[in-house]
Design a protein around this nucleic acid. Structure first.
Lengths: 203, 203
DNA sequence: CCTACCGATCGGTAGG
DNA sequence: CCTACCGATCGGTAGG
């Protein structure tokens, strides 16, 4: 009984790690060529198996996209949830959000890029789910900026514009990631925070 | 002779305007679903003809993408060329660049979005050509920011980070464009300029 | 501008 | 995990 459940756990772990490997390769290819331009045969080649064998680990091409994207949205929701519970000043909350997104773009570049560039290929009902989550996330960010203005920490900039700008700025790092990277991740992160926070902070 | 050349000119103009119509529809669809996920049959439906008939106006699917993208890169090059010849302060040059990109995103949204999101589907040698042009454009922007620092107008922010941030910020407006647009184009443009220029300006 | 059609490739399944 | 294969759809051409 013990041995059975142990070997089942092992089998499950092995299978999960092979699936993880497929998801990682898929994220890299979706990020580089796009979801639609990546075929299951391309992906199978990158994984080192036949296309048909992929279906022992995943159910469909769309499922791969879903898993990549909703793993990311989950991380984002966890982070902003902790911010909401925490006691940072609003300006520090914005700084934390910028650093969080910059770090995702630098250390989970493929997954993050797939989320921002390929979400429209999610099949329903996942597409609607994603759009709702993104909308909620934006509203939460807007609230932080509105609070920051009302509490005298920030300038009176339209929260909607600020949030769109903050979120999209990070996308530029895609090119940094593909380039020779003469600037260190830490310096990029600090420069970006300094640059963006200056547009918000009072004084 | 006169009549012949006149009717040829008319025929040419008519053909050009039908091709323009196809390009506009294509830009809208490439922008919404991506280049790879848009089939020539989808496009033909949107234009109102059979798929085969498209080929009387264009040579290939890739040619459509090329025309959309290189029309935009040409506009960008013309604008920054005029800036280089002009006598604006460096900070005013940056402001002009921001306004130019915001306006492209607001008034030529489909073409601009296709350029930033679908360039990787250009076939060679166009892909290399595009990458070279983008690199040159970034270098020109970096020079303006470096000059601005040396002449005491701007803070000492890494030009590379500033340029990546400025260029990618505009991409957020994609969501504004798709939404109910409660904020006027002029206010969006001004807010964005204020927000981004604050991160650069000294004082 | 259409009908008819091409070979290639797509996501995915059956069966072992 | 593989071989063999499915119907659907792809970009594009021939011929009128």
């Amino acid at each position: 009984m013990q041995i059975v459940s142990l070997s089942m756990a092992t089998a499950k772990r092995k299978k999960a790690s092979k699936k993880d490997f497929i998801l990682r390769r898929a994220a890299a290819m979706f990020s580089e060529k796009g979801y639609s331009a990546t075929s299951m045969r391309d992906l199978a080649d990158a994984v080192g198996i036949e296309a048909a064998s992929l279906y022992n680990h995943i159910q469909s091409k769309a499922e791969i996209l879903q898993e990549i994207i909703f793993r990311m949205t989950n991380d984002c929701n966890v982070h902003i949830g902790e911010l909401e519970k925490g006691k940072l000043s609003n300006i520090k909350k914005v700084e934390s959000l910028i650093r969080f997104h910059v770090q995702m773009m630098m250390y989970q570049c493929d997954d993050y890029t797939v989320m921002i560039n390929e979400w429209m290929h999610l099949p329903e009902p996942y597409l609607t789910n994603f759009n709702i989550q993104r909308r909620q996330y934006v509203v939460k960010m807007e609230k932080i900026i509105t609070d920051g203005f009302q509490q005298g920490e920030m300038k009176n900039i339209a929260p909607y514009v600020a949030v769109l700008t903050l979120l999209s700025s990070v996308r530029g790092l895609e090119f940094w990631h593909r380039s020779s990277q003469k600037i260190s991740p830490q310096k990029i992160e600090d420069d970006m925070v300094n640059f963006l926070i200056k547009g918000l902070k009072k004084n």
